[in-house]
Amino acid sequence: MNEVIQGLKLMPIDYYIAFCSILFVIGVIGVLIKRNALVIFMSVELMLNSINLLIAAFSVYWNSASGQILVIFVMVVAAAEVAVGLSILVVTYQNTQSIDMNLLKRLKE
């Protein structure tokens, strides 16, 4: 595996910056335009993943392992967030029979 990978050249960091920014912005737009709470969670996952990839790229370019450790911790937090968020979603669905975000605007009533 090492010999196969060692021949690869790294792309310039600008490409990773552009790619991850595009992916992040797609996630932001998804959060803004969707009303389905499940799809909003998916967009949040998309944003977290683009950030993870950019952190990993920076850590490889700086030749420092701390960045990749940070990626692992971000994954941990994302997993915890999804578990709690989806359980909130299930409870909301049991109460209102819907996961429409526009209904959740009136939570305090």
Binding site: I13, D14, I17, S21, V25
Partner: peptide, 27 residues
């Protein structure tokens, strides 16, 4: 979203990071 994209790319392109020749890093 497009405005955010432009801002992000402009800000992050200000970084100067030399590209290593090959991916020989073992980290």
């Amino acid at each position: 979203g497009l405005l955010l994209l432009v801002t992000l790319v402009i800000i992050l392109n200000g970084l100067v990071i030399p590209t290593p020749k090959t991916a020989t890093t073992q980290i």
